[in-house]
Nucleic acid binder design. Structure first.
Lengths: 211, 211
DNA sequence: GATCGATTAAAACACCCGTTTGAAACGCTG
DNA sequence: CAGCGTTTCAAACGGGTGTTTTAATCGATC
């Protein structure tokens, strides 16, 4: 890690600590000491603690958003080509899979996913506004595509079901790097891919449920 | 509020502020000033800030847990009486409905529900451990009942699906008192009862999805 | 009405926070 | 090698934190 430049080391440390302890629970002193940098380096390179958070989120979220957009566009294009409505499940896959697959994109990516997962219900506006602002255009595209896939659902109902979907998804995202609640002597928990497939099955069935 | 004793006023203020701003974002000075009490009163009556949090959670969660247990037991008893397996949907209703209905149990209850909803993915162990410790026995009963309702599902799969259910549920709980993300010009969002019914429909369909 | 435990009150404690400052060290270009 | 913009560094700033202390006030009991 020490051959990377200071800015990157701080981003990595911030990503890890923000994800593990939350934004307000993480001090600049903890970040800079993990990054082996001077305390003032954060304000020098980023301007403030909040700007560092924005940089941490943007670094990963912009590429992730683009990937999601490409996948959704591909689903829409194929539907248009065959003259049919896109299926809800394929849209969900386009939205969910890049996110969960992202976790194996390298060290720190899993931390980042946990950070994003929690951002959705963050009480603090610092984190939530930053996150929502970045993800909203992407999300709007997702929602409007879903409306075309499920035209029989009233908008308000679809919105509620999408909210449930996001809840299930974010919960998986932010608990995937934590020890699970030991509710039962499960022989063996599912691995990441199986979990993603189960999530997809769960939410697509729920989304298409009869009213 | 001012005719209540100091201890109760502090509990109410803590509940409101912990729910709105999070545990670490809320200072004892803010709590005591809202409660019209002296700063030292928290440490006098509760011992510490963390002990206050525990008291806030316990005050509502213990009765809620008992209510949930009664409802689940009733479902199990009726199933036993008719010699059939309990249905997943009725178990879900027994678990979910008391929680959401709790929001109309009085002022502050809605704040509390948001606090609980966020506790499940709380990065800080202070809040999470306190919450998990209290809810775990109740949750175990719920899970084992579900296993009897859906014996064909492997334990690991059921666990994953229950995790999704909790995610959807907690997301509803902690966003129900926030302005919704404006994804679309929805004519009119669902009211609380409709939302609860939609949630129940969504998760019970997902839980019973084919593998 | 005096006494004594329970409660409230104001003040101080020691510590951690994000940010700023000003000087030192570095790395490049001329 | 001199000069200069960039980066690092130690130190301090002002302010907020949870907690503790000490004294004052209250209320019931004798």
């Amino acid at each position: 890690m020490s051959q990377l430049d200071t800015k990157t080391r701080i981003l990595d440390a911030g990503e890890h600590l923000f994800a593990r302890d939350g934004f307000h629970n993480t001090s600049l002193r903890t970040i800079t000491s993990l990054a082996k940098a001077n305390l003032a380096a954060v304000n020098y390179h980023f301007g403030s603690k909040e700007a560092l958070l924005r940089a941490v989120i943007e670094r990963r979220l912009l590429p992730l958003n683009q990937l999601r957009k490409e996948q959704i566009d591909a689903v829409l294009a194929e539907a248009a080509a065959t003259g049919t409505a896109p299926s809800a499940k394929s849209l969900l896959r386009a939205f969910i899979e890049p996110t969960l697959a992202f976790r194996s994109a390298g060290p720190g990516a899993q931390d980042f996913i946990a950070l994003v997962g929690r951002s959705m219900s963050e009480p603090d506006e610092t984190v939530r506004n930053c996150f929502i602002g970045l993800v909203l255009p992407n999300f709007r595209l997702f929602f409007e595509s879903l409306q075309r896939a499920l035209p029989q659902l009233p908008t308000a109902v679809l919105m509620a079901r999408v909210q449930f979907t996001l809840g299930a998804m974010s919960h998986v995202m932010c608990t995937s790097n934590k020890p699970p609640i030991n509710i039962s002597a499960a022989p063996q928990p599912l691995d990441d891919d199986e979990l993603a497939e189960q999530l997809l099955q769960f939410v697509s069935t729920g989304l298409e449920a009869p009213q």
